[in-house]
C-alpha cells in the first residue's frame, strides 16, 4: 500500500533495464519499499540494477524474463507478480527507439518496433489493469513520449507507436476511474540515455534523473499527465497547432 505520505511498498518495472525506470526507483521515497520486481529481457544492466536495489536494503528483489513482443506470455508473468503480493506502482518503461532510415527500408523491423512499443504495451497494460482493478488500488506509470504528440518526419515510426501507446494509456486511465487504480502518462522530451547516445540533442533535452523527479512529484500530486521537462507542455501545444506545411519544414 502507498501510505499517506507517498511511501510505496512494492514496485513492478516492465522494462527492467530502462534507465528512466532505474532513476525513478532511485527517486521514489523508499523507506517502506520492500519488494521490487524487474521484468525485462535478461541483461547485465537488469542484474546490476537488482544488485543495487538489494544493496539499498530492499528485502525482496527479483528479476523476471519479459519480452514485450511475446504477448502470449504476459498474462502469466503479471499474475505471478501480483499473486506474490499487492503491487503499488507499475512502471511501464520498455520501448525501442530504432533507426528511422533503416526502418523505412525494412518494414518487418518497423513492425517489430511497433509491436514492442505499442502492441506489447496494450497487451501487458490490460493484464496489469485487470489486476489493479482486482486489488482496488495502485498506480500505473506509462512512459510515453512527446514524439507521440506529433509525429515528425525524422522519427514518425517510433512516434506513431508512442502516439498509440499514449492514446491507449489515457483511455485506460479513464476506464480505471473509480476502481482505486489510476494511470500517470509521462511524456518526456529528448532524454540523454544509452538509447539516445550519439544522437544530436533536441531542444529542452533532459536526463533520466530529472524525468524521475518529475514523475515522483506527479505521483505525489495524483496527476494524470505530465511532461518532462514541464515546459514541453506549452511547447508541444504550439507545435501541434502548426500547419502541416510549416511543421514539415522545421529542422530535425
Amino acid at each position: 500500500m502507498i501510505n499517506a505520505v507517498g511511501q510505496a511498498q512494492s514496485v513492478l518495472v516492465l522494462g527492467g533495464g530502462s534507465e528512466i525506470a532505474g532513476a525513478i526507483l532511485r527517486a521514489l521515497p523508499a523507506a517502506r519499499l520492500q519488494r521490487v520486481v524487474l521484468a525485462g529481457r535478461r541483461s547485465s544492466v537488469m542484474e546490476e540494477r537488482a544488485a543495487e536495489l538489494r544493496g539499498r536494503g530492499i528485502a525482496d528483489v527479483e528479476t523476471v524474463d519479459f519480452d514485450a513482443r511475446d504477448t502470449a506470455s504476459h498474462g502469466a508473468i503479471i499474475d505471478a507478480a501480483f499473486d506474490a503480493g499487492d503491487i503499488d506502482i507499475v512502471l511501464l518503461a520498455f520501448g525501442v527507439l530504432g533507426d528511422q532510415e533503416a526502418l523505412e527500408s525494412d518494414p518487418a523491423a518497423a513492425v517489430d518496433l511497433v509491436t514492442a512499443n505499442y502492441v506489447g504495451a496494450v497487451s501487458v497494460g490490460l493484464h496489469v489493469a485487470r489486476r489493479l482493478r482486482q486489488q482496488g488500488h495502485g498506480r500505473l506509470v506509462v512512459l510515453s513520449s512527446v514524439a507521440g504528440d506529433r509525429a515528425r518526419r525524422a522519427n514518425y515510426i517510433y512516434g506513431s507507436s508512442k502516439a498509440g501507446l499514449d492514446a491507449f494509456a489515457q483511455g485506460l486511465g479513464d476506464a480505471l476511474a473509480g476502481s482505486g487504480a489510476s494511470v500517470l502518462v509521462v511524456r518526456p522530451g529528448f532524454v540523454r540515455t544509452t538509447m539516445t547516445q550519439g544522437m544530436s540533442e533536441a531542444p529542452f533535452a533532459t536526463d533520466a534523473d530529472a524525468v524521475a523527479a518529475i514523475v515522483v512529484a506527479a505521483l505525489a500530486k495524483g496527476r494524470e499527465t505530465v511532461y518532462a521537462p514541464a515546459v514541453l507542455r506549452p511547447v508541444m501545444a504550439a507545435i501541434k497547432a502548426l500547419p502541416r506545411g510549416v511543421f514539415r519544414r522545421l529542422p530535425g
Partner: peptide, 14 residues
C-alpha cells in the same frame, strides 16, 4: 472510493 478522515490513500472496495 473510500478514505479515512484524513482523506489520504483512497482505495476501492465493494
Amino acid at each position: 472510493m473510500l478514505t479515512g478522515w484524513g482523506r489520504t490513500s483512497p482505495t476501492a472496495a465493494t
